[in-house]
Amino acid sequence: MADEIDVNTIAAMARDAEWLSADACAFILGLTTRGGKINRRAFLERVAVRSSFPRPMAIGSKKLWNREAVVAWADDEARISRAS
């Protein structure tokens, strides 16, 4: 990734922002590579495409997800997983 953002920046974005980038969503959801880097690709290819995942807001070519909706979705998924 030519424009790689450091983990501290993404953590701050995920904590303070109302709208999240794909990197910030991956951070919040705990998606990392084996090397410990944020796994944006896993988020986009495995999570963001789910019909149950909140739809993004598109601004030009950028997609942003509502932080509150992403956290609520993650909580719901955790509840469903525990109930299984």
Score class of each variant (00 low, 15 high):
79 R>C: 04
54 P>L: 00
21 S>R: 02
84 S>F: 11
1 M>T: 09
62 K>F: 15
9 T>Q: 12
53 F>Y: 00
83 A>R: 13
17 A>T: 10
64 L>W: 12
10 I>V: 13
48 A>G: 01
19 W>Y: 14
29 L>D: 01
67 R>I: 04
43 F>I: 02
69 A>I: 03
74 A>K: 05
36 G>V: 09
40 R>L: 10
13 M>C: 07
51 S>P: 05
7 V>K: 15
1 M>A: 07
35 G>P: 03
38 I>Q: 11
35 G>T: 09
23 D>I: 09
65 W>D: 02
3 D>Y: 05
9 T>D: 13
60 G>W: 03
23 D>E: 15
73 W>M: 01
20 L>E: 03
34 R>V: 15
23 D>N: 13
80 I>W: 05
32 T>C: 08
76 D>T: 08
71 V>A: 03
67 R>P: 10
11 A>V: 07
2 A>K: 12
41 R>H: 12
69 A>D: 15
78 A>N: 02
40 R>C: 04
34 R>N: 13
36 G>D: 10
10 I>F: 12
81 S>M: 11
27 F>D: 05
62 K>R: 09
83 A>I: 05
57 M>W: 08
40 R>F: 05
29 L>T: 01
45 E>K: 15
60 G>T: 06
38 I>G: 13
46 R>P: 03
28 I>C: 12
1 M>R: 07
